[in-house]
Design a protein around this nucleic acid. Structure first.
Lengths: 189, 189
DNA sequence: ACCTGAACACCGTTCAAGT
DNA sequence: ACCTGAACACCGTTCAAGT
């Protein structure tokens, strides 16, 4: 006799995403997920391949959310410089609202749960379009990488509380956006 | 009768640093350290406060090494722009030689093992001096943060294999250095 | 003074047994 | 078809007992 399905992959992902944000990666245990799902840990293996697979699926969901946030930010902008400015701020807002989700995606641990190329390509598409306009097609990729690396690094440092010297962190962020946007396409080879 | 001291904090740190690099953070277990030290895991607690404390001490050692590397890079340089260029390249070389050490220091996990302010301040001192020269005293900190964030982000992405779109990663790195250095002190408020 | 085995409370994961 | 308890191999950590 088939036993009633008491949970689902969808529920497990929702619980896991919430647990990660509330408790951090160490709190994201199979037992904790199972408890919230009203089930025993071994039952989870009927729906997901194990903890690593669960973390990877959570990360993919975060990347999708991030892509949406960046798209929205780009939509409201006038020019390419504004796209980048808004994208950077949106990324920072996202990191503040969901720090653990941000860290999961941008600071992958030893398990190496990074999203597939198609989903991450979609997430950076607006940035790439903007840098193509500002820096030209030939330098678009290098410029996008410069911008992404800066934003990622800055926000990561902020989350890690690595700005130990005090000072105005908001101002440093705006300084960075302004100078990066201004520098594109202006430097001689 | 006192029993012979079969290991020491110094040996434990050396073993831990090596183990981290060889096996990654998951391989850095108290048992693995103890085995290499020729001792049982509980004995480690006579020398170090526990795994978290061990990781923190390892991280501090890495920051000291990093400071030395950055100082050396700065010493050989002619002008402030060259200091930054050399520092960025030195950081990248360090990350390639000791990826796990780099990740430990720049991507602190939930344990939050970041170095004390004095040691990290010393590590960034050459960068700060260079940005003061390029961007002026007033903007020195914001400029240093922009530069550090970019370098950290770029190298972190490279280690995480996050440059999925292909292209020339070395060229993108040099593009970033060149544009960041050039942009300092050139943008209107 | 340091090291040890044994024990405890956790993990993730497997699997035969239940329904 | 899914869920369960029991078991296994690991963790980090504590502590009384050895020398």
């Amino acid at each position: 006799m088939p036993s009633p399905r008491r949970t689902s992959l969808e529920q497990i992902l929702t619980i896991g995403t919430g647990l990660l944000e509330e408790q951090g990666p160490d709190g994201l245990t199979m037992q904790a997920v199972a408890q919230r799902a009203g089930v025993r840990a071994p039952s989870l293996y009927k729906h997901v391949d194990g903890r690593d697979a669960l973390v990877r699926l959570i990360a993919e969901g975060v990347v999708v959310d991030l892509g949406r946030v960046l798209e929205e930010a780009a939509d409201g902008a006038g020019g390419a410089g504004e796209v980048l400015t808004r994208a950077a701020r949106a990324l920072r807002d996202f990191a503040r609202a969901r720090p653990q989700a941000f860290l999961l995606v941008f600071h992958p641990g030893p398990g190496g749960h990074r999203p597939g190329p198609e989903v991450s390509a979609r997430a950076v598409a607006p940035v790439l379009a903007a840098t193509a306009e500002l820096a030209g097609e030939r330098d678009a990729l290098a410029a996008a990488r410069t911008f992404t690396a800066w934003a990622r690094g800055f926000i990561g440092m902020e989350l890690a509380d690595a700005f130990g010297l005090g000072g105005d962190v908001d101002a440093a962020f705006e300084y960075g956006v302004r100078h990066l946007v201004a520098s594109m396409g202006r430097v001689a080879q």
